[in-house]
Simulated assay, not measured.
Amino acid sequence: MRTDLNNELATKPHYPILDGLRGVAAIIVVTFHLAEPFSTSNLDKFVNHGYLAVDFFFLLSGFVMGYAYDDRWNKMTVGNFFKRRVIRLQPMVVLGMTLGAIGFYFTDSTLWPLIHTVPLWKMLLVMLVGYTILPVPLSLDIRGWEEMHPLNSVGWSLFFEYIANILYAVWIRKFSKTTLTILVGVAAIALVHLAITNGDVSGGWTLNVEQVCIGLTRVMFPFFAGLLLSRIAKPTKIKNALLWCSLLVAIVLYMPRIGGAGHLWLNGIYDSVCIIIVFPLIVYLGASGVMQSQKEHKVCKFLGDISYPLYLAHYPIVYFYVAWISNNKGMTIAQAWPYALLILMGSIVLAYAALKWYDEPVRKWLRKYY
């Protein structure tokens, strides 16, 4: 890629509050996974709608993608676009899968009784495939949870984000606003159907037809709605946007289940409203936000910087935590919360260390030589 384009993309102003909101959502994802072992189903999870953070990430990504690249295509090839995306995303994918592999044989639990029977070559094969973010077939499900990425569960959402990136670069970036609006409308209908039929949009991490359809449905509306929003939104100036948007994100994701077992469709409506209306509103407000102080700017930068490393690095630690909960039958969240808090804080420290000692240096090296 030409150096002038690299400099232009690197120096183009971005939205610091949106960076901060990504970090807020990533922290809530960690709390979602730490509370999950105490639930018996989607109906009684403590952080009940934490799964919607993925849909929020998709919408943020679509918005930022449109803002960063829509007006650059006369200076950039599709190949250069993908090179930039790989340099941005893959180093942490590699680290996340490596951390999962390192911890794989140490998670003794009744949840995964066959882990120690998995040959080393098979685990290494799963790790190497994971480095590419391509999903592994069920025949390589070495953990037994039917996950696309048994060494680091959260990799599934990166797989679908890559699909959205490919669709954007190869095809959908050329859409007019009208055509893109039609696509987003059709995707919204599919999303509502999924949510109301299933009672929620949770799913997408297994390599079978049903789950892949869920994953595609989950990514298509928010990602391309974010792209559309970036093309039509005219941000204003809103004070205290970080505070209010963070509160909205927290309220949405911590909201208890709606409707219960008898009225699953009500929760489906809640998910639909959040993804189709509330999340675009939050992104618009965040993009309109005005930094109030240097301290607020530093907070947003820190949260934005750790968001992606935190998302990729926390789950290998969560596997140990889940195993510990499983091995101590009767453990309550009241007893476990100090350990959960310790893991949350440790995950944030690990994410920051990964950012400074690994992710940023590796990306800098890759940009220099590739």
Rank of each mutant, 00 (worst) to 15 (best):
A187H: 08
V290N: 10
W244D: 13
A35M: 14
Y105M: 06
G100N: 02
R2K: 15
V322D: 12
L344C: 07
A68M: 05
G185K: 02
K364V: 12
I282W: 01
A225I: 07
L120N: 01
I214K: 13
V136P: 07
M65A: 06
T77P: 03
D108E: 12
F224E: 10
L138A: 10
I277Q: 13
T11K: 12
F175H: 12
F56A: 03
D141C: 01
L128I: 04
Q90Y: 10
L138Q: 15
T217F: 00
P338H: 09
L9F: 02
K45Q: 12
L99W: 04
I275G: 07
A25N: 04
K239N: 14
F57R: 00
L350K: 11
L167D: 05
S139W: 05
D108T: 04
V273S: 11
Q335V: 05
G304H: 02
W171Y: 11
G50A: 02
Y315F: 12
T107A: 07
L253A: 05
V129F: 08
A241G: 05
N74C: 09
W156K: 11
L95W: 08
T217H: 00
Q90T: 00
D55I: 05
F104A: 10
A334Q: 15
A26I: 03
F224C: 02
G259C: 05
I166A: 08
I27Y: 08
G304F: 01
I251G: 06
Y358W: 11
V349S: 01
S41H: 09
F38D: 15
S293E: 09
S288R: 04
M123H: 00
Q294G: 15
F46G: 13
F221H: 09
L138Y: 04
V212D: 06
W324K: 13
S246D: 08
P16W: 05
Y358T: 01
K364T: 15
K295S: 11
V283N: 10
Y311R: 04
K122T: 03
L95I: 01
L281A: 15
K368R: 13
A336R: 08
A101C: 00
V118F: 04
A250Q: 09
A353Q: 07
R72H: 00
L281T: 15
D305P: 03
N48D: 03
L59K: 07
I282E: 12
G50F: 06
F159S: 10
L247T: 11
P316A: 08
P113R: 04
P361A: 06
E161I: 09
Y105K: 01
R2H: 13
I133Q: 00
I276E: 15
L183Q: 08
L140W: 06
G185L: 06
S176F: 05
V273T: 14
F104Q: 10
R218V: 02
V24G: 02
V318W: 10
H33L: 06
